[in-house]
Design a protein around this nucleic acid. Sequence first.
DNA 1: TAAATACATAGAAATATGTCTATATTTGCA
DNA 2: TGCAAATATAGACATATTTCTATGTATTTA
Lengths: 110, 110
Amino acid sequence: MSIFASKIKTMTLTQRINPEKLEHAASMLRVLSHPVRLAIVDLLFTNGPLSVQEIQEKLGLEQAIASQHLILMKDKGVLSSVKEGRCHYFSLLYPNMKNIIHCLEECCNA
Amino acid sequence: MSIFASKIKTMTLTQRINPEKLEHAASMLRVLSHPVRLAIVDLLFTNGPLSVQEIQEKLGLEQAIASQHLILMKDKGVLSSVKEGRCHYFSLLYPNMKNIIHCLEECCNA
DNA sequence: TAAATACATAGAAATATGTCTATATTTGCA
DNA sequence: TGCAAATATAGACATATTTCTATGTATTTA
């Protein structure tokens, strides 16, 4: 049952779903609301799992910056990671996440 | 031409589009990344143009809080408003914006 | 004109976010 | 074992966000 689907139009989002879920939804969007993180989503959607170093190089980021954004994205449930040797490979937990970006451009010519 | 559509897979988002557009896209998401503002999008999508007072009452917000969020959303290009007498009616500039929320739940069971 | 209604805004304070530098941790390899 | 590679983390700092209280502005109505 979707948290956003409403049967009773007079009920607000806040009334229909619990605050935790609403905050979580907002949190997911907040993760995407950064140029670097949008670029990471795009990169991983196109290229599949990549190590921190690969992401760092392809996007021209400092090591710490790349790591910090990636860990944040993982903590917030946007990315997953697997460890192979000393490399950590990150990938999109939900590749459909890219659709949000697609929606965004459809909505407002971003 | 979509800013996110890539013909050359080796080009990153940052390389394909200009930083201003990327920042604008991130900015649009940042506007949505707040529980109250998600609730406002939902409310206006369902109920059409509403005055500040109506929004305030339906969502149980303080007057200043409602006004601040609404003005922010307008400034960032998410809402439009018309003034009738002393009421300011706000509505979604792009009703499709709701789709982003729909995508969000599809992506990650938000 | 005075009061009330509907909003907006300013300023302060708390919290969150983003970046940078430096350092720590883990793992692979000579 | 000792060094290098890959990544994570800590701490400091600047900036942004959010909320709150109070006040200002525009408009309607008595």
